[in-house]
Simulated scan of single mutants.
Amino acid sequence: MRSIFLLFVFSMLTVGTFAQEEDWTWWNEINGWEPGMPSWRTFLTISPGYLGPNALPVPEVKKGFVEGKKQVEIAGNVHLRKGDNTQDVSGRFYYPFAGNKIAVEVYGVMFERYAFSEEVRDERAARDKDGKGTTIGDLYFSTQLQLWKDRKFPDALLRVTMKTASGGALDAARYTDSPGYFFDLSFSKRFANLNNGWVLLPFGSLGFYSWQTNDDMNWQNDAWMYSAGFDLAKGKWNFSNSLAGYNGYKNQRDQPMVYNFELKRQLKRDALRFQLTYGLRDWTYTKFTFAYCWQWD
């Protein structure tokens, strides 16, 4: 009886191992992988054009000043792209202090649902055969320092942000499974008392973005980061338009550029926000964001 039991266990292990090997046959054939070649991870391209929409997105545009209210925001996001539609829930915590001279910010995707086509799967060398699943995203930690404000020249803000490697589903090419960082200087100048009470705020920024890759010859990709735009505000409404992006040096769809339109409605204490982000280059998604923001002094 004991011999029969051991034979049964051995048979199950053998079948399980065989099935596991068979599971990757489709990927090996599509990508030309053979025994002795480097790991499947080296077949991935760690750049915004070959990953999910939340892996290496163009950072949020800052506007030259520390916002004066503490904030907790919850947002629902829909990313539309041929062959890769993605939905997620993101969160943000923002805390200014020291007389609004410094602020800390923590944000990231708490839950992501994805579904991509075989064409997208094979282009990205993903190992998720059916292209469907859920995962969590990377967590970002940001510190912002008001350099100067309310002077004759434009306001200036320094932002330094670290990206963690908490995002999952590397095998589905959704996140990088590696850290990164970026920093930038943003500037703005407020022009009030325009026609009928409108306020104009032009802004812009320049910075640097770096993230780790899986290239043995170049372990990181470095990029110049930029943005430019303007706000129009009246009463409890704020309209924002901007262009933003960054330019990596490897020329592997690593130069994303996006257009942002944002509409924000201030409530009695809190706020509602709608944002459209349209990919112009490399990051080829159209993103819709609906957010509710709790605010307090």
Rank of each mutant, 00 (worst) to 15 (best):
S166I: 14
F97T: 07
S39E: 08
Y285F: 04
Y292C: 04
V66K: 02
G204I: 11
F65K: 06
M110C: 03
F288D: 12
I46T: 08
Q20K: 12
W24A: 12
R113M: 06
T143C: 07
Q212T: 15
D215R: 14
G168Q: 11
C293N: 13
T86H: 01
G68Y: 00
S39L: 08
L6E: 15
W211R: 02
I74A: 05
E29G: 00
S142F: 01
M217C: 01
L13S: 13
Y209R: 05
A126V: 05
A165F: 01
S117H: 09
F111M: 13
K149C: 08
Q20M: 11
R81C: 00
E118R: 14
V72P: 04
A291V: 03
R92N: 07
Y114V: 09
D270P: 05
W26F: 00
N251I: 13
P38I: 15
F97G: 02
R113S: 15
Y140V: 03
G83C: 04
R151V: 15
L276H: 01
N238H: 05
S205A: 02
K70T: 06
W294E: 06
N247A: 14
Y181W: 06
T277S: 12
Q275F: 01
S205Q: 04
K264E: 12
R273W: 06
D122H: 11
Y50C: 06
K189D: 09
L200E: 06
L139I: 15
D216A: 12
E73Y: 04
F191C: 09
I46C: 09
G180D: 00
G108K: 09
F153S: 13
A291C: 03
N196A: 11
F274N: 01
A223L: 14
G248R: 10
V106H: 00
G279A: 07
R253C: 09
I136Y: 02
T42V: 14
A223N: 08
N31T: 08
V89S: 01
F65S: 10
G137P: 03
P57G: 08
G133M: 04
K250R: 14
A233K: 11
R2Q: 14
Y107I: 07
L200S: 04
R92H: 03
F290T: 02
F116C: 10
T42H: 11
G64V: 08
G137S: 02
D215M: 13
D215A: 15
T277M: 08
E29Y: 01
K63T: 10
L139N: 11
R281I: 00
S90M: 02
P59D: 06
A291E: 04
L185D: 01
W33Q: 15
E112D: 11
V66S: 00
K149T: 14
R281D: 08
F203C: 03
I4G: 02
R273H: 01
G16N: 12
P154W: 11
Y226E: 10
F5C: 15
D254M: 10
R41K: 10
N28H: 14
L206S: 11
N247F: 13
Y50E: 03
